[in-house]
């Protein structure tokens, strides 16, 4: 009898331990490049990040192939944008319905920019919205692996601190220059969150939608609008050849600056930090140019 009680206690206790500590480190899937960086920084050496699609594909119009579906079945969790940037995965998850998969909606706690029923899904380009997502992902991963929850929170905190420190460069310019008359345009609405965190707003958006070239009449209209609104700088996407941008530059004389959209290249732990540093430096450069121009 005693042996049975001991065995029962042992089983109960071991069950508790297993509930606290997963048998193997977490395998966390991601749909977009920035989420690779977020998750890699949060997990540290306590888990593995697995991109759902190979690098080099545009998430806007991607459809999953059998290899991607196989990857989906290996995951403990999948971090998604969930507000329009990775719709390709939503349908697949619904169809395949992997039994052990936990969906983590990175934008769950992010206050979103939008008009009508549509949200701007480019939250990952902004420093603050990225930090918000990092904390939400860290909390969700901590629930999946409670024994490492504090470790994930600490990593998220340190990563957030690192990202926030990148903003200082532009903040110093904002303090010292009068930018109230500076007018900004962008090729598509990817930089709304990013610019807003520096108190800047976009006066004109050139592309009708991401990657869609404006027609000749739309382009003429844009050129007229840029001239009329007296736009000083235009922000466009790095790694995207837009010949019409050259036309706008030539016709209006405005200065073009390139921002990283963070959805190209290889998946890397330091990608977000590097891309944000690039964007912030470009923004600082653009603001200095525009401030001198308007003054």
């Amino acid at each position: 009898m005693k042996i049975w009680i001991k065995l029962l206690l042992l089983l109960t206790f071991s069950g508790h331990v297993f509930a606290q500590q997963p048998a193997k480190p977490l395998t966390v899937g991601i749909t977009l490049h920035p989420y690779y960086s977020y998750v890699a920084n949060i997990l540290g050496d306590k888990g593995r990040v697995l991109p759902l699609i190979d690098s080099g594909f545009n998430p806007h119009n991607y459809s999953l192939n059998p290899a991607d579906i196989a990857r989906l079945n290996q995951l403990d969790a999948l971090v998604v944008n969930g507000i329009g940037h990775d719709e390709f995965v939503m349908l697949a998850v619904e169809r395949v319905n992997p039994p052990n998969l936990t969906m983590i909606y990175a934008n769950k706690d992010v206050p979103l920019l939008g008009h009508g029923d549509k949200y701007n899904s480019h939250t990952f380009v902004s420093v603050d919205a990225s930090i918000r997502q990092v904390y939400s992902v860290a909390k969700a991963l901590g629930k999946l692996d409670p024994s490492n929850a504090k470790y994930f929170s600490k990593n998220a905190f340190l990563y957030a601190k690192k990202l926030r420190s990148l903003k200082k460069n532009v903040q110093n310019i904002l303090i010292n220059k009068d930018l109230s008359k500076v007018k900004i345009a962008s090729t598509h609405n990817a930089y709304g969150y990013f610019l807003q965190e520096f108190g800047l707003t976009v006066s004109a958006v050139v592309e009708p939608a991401h990657g869609i070239k404006p027609t000749a009449s739309q382009l003429q209209k844009t050129i007229d609008e840029i001239r009329k609104a007296d736009i000083d700088v235009l922000f466009t996407e790095l790694n995207m050849t837009n010949s019409y941008i050259d036309v706008i530059e030539k016709e209006t004389g405005i200065k073009i600056y390139h921002f990283s959209h963070m959805t190209h290249g290889e998946y890397a732990k330091g990608m977000v930090e590097e891309a944000m540093r690039h964007n912030i430096n470009k923004l600082a450069e653009a603001l200095l140019y525009a401030a001198n121009k308007v003054s």
């Binding site: 706690d109 992010v110 206050p111 979103l112 918000r132 807003q196 707003t201």
Partner: peptide, 23 residues
């Protein structure tokens, strides 16, 4: 009912603060 777009970043910062304070 949506928060006006111009206050989105302030709300994001407050939301981050809520997590950092708790931590």
């Amino acid at each position: 009912i949506r928060l006006p777009n111009q206050l989105i970043n302030l709300a994001t910062q407050l939301s981050i603060a809520s997590d950092e304070i708790a931590m």
